[in-house]
């Protein structure tokens, strides 16, 4: 797997490169800014890009803009956004122009090699990724207690996976069940929780996130 990194902190960049090296992933581009990454991507193709949200020159959402440009020019390239802030609205913003090949992780998740590899593989496959810690926090929120209690344990797990952006196939594999069973669970979940939309929508993750956030 060929990876490009856009990250302004040299120390973090080095740590990330080191972590990716251990995962047998080749880092072919290391850029300090989003524009640098975009410039190099044209010469040096990559499978996925890891992009920090907050980068020069504005230190606001420069990374998100880079991601949008990259997604537009290279729709098949996986994009993994990293953020220091546990801010789900970055994820929802990332998903508004498309959910395939896009993921959002908290920066400290990088320390977990398994989670990082899993996330990279999923964005390369075309799935979405939402930091499971953020999803866990949302699901444990008291607001949802009553409604979530209506779900079976399996349904709760499926909901969590949907919120994390996994595909039907991904969920089926992870939970060792058939695609059809997963779809049935999803339909029930949407009905029970009265989530607007349908589980077949490719922007399903957005609907689930919105429901979880109470919007």
């Amino acid at each position: 797997m060929r990876i490009g990194i856009a990250e302004d902190s040299a120390l973090f960049r080095d740590g990330l490169t080191m972590q990716l090296g251990r995962l047998d992933v080749r880092v072919v581009i290391t850029a300090g800014t989003g524009d640098e990454l975009l410039a190099q991507v044209t010469r040096c193709p990559i499978d996925a890009a890891i992009i920090d949200v907050k980068m020069p020159p504005n230190f606001t959402d420069d990374g998100l803009q880079t991601a949008e440009k990259l997604a537009a020019s290279h729709p098949a390239t996986g994009i993994l956004m990293l953020s220091q802030y546990a801010e789900l609205s970055y994820a929802t913003r990332l998903f508004t122009t498309g959910t395939a090949h896009r993921g959002y992780l908290l920066k400290d998740r990088v320390a977990n090699a398994q989670a990082l590899r899993d996330a990279l593989q999923r964005v390369c496959r075309g799935e979405s990724v939402v930091d499971e810690q953020l999803i866990g926090r949302l699901l444990s929120h008291q607001r949802h207690l009553n409604k979530l209690n209506d779900l079976t344990a399996t349904e709760q797990a499926v909901l969590r996976h949907m919120a994390e952006g996994r595909s039907n196939a991904g969920i089926a594999t992870t939970m060792s069940m058939s695609n059809k069973a997963v779809e049935a669970h999803m339909t029930r979940i949407f009905a029970k929780l009265e989530i607007p939309g349908s589980p077949d929508d490719n922007r399903r993750v957005l609907a689930v996130l919105a429901w979880l956030r109470g919007m």
Binding site: K107, V110, A111
Partner: peptide, 8 residues
């Protein structure tokens, strides 16, 4: 960020 790097 340094702590994350150390964590890695």
């Amino acid at each position: 960020q340094r702590l994350v790097a150390i964590s890695i």
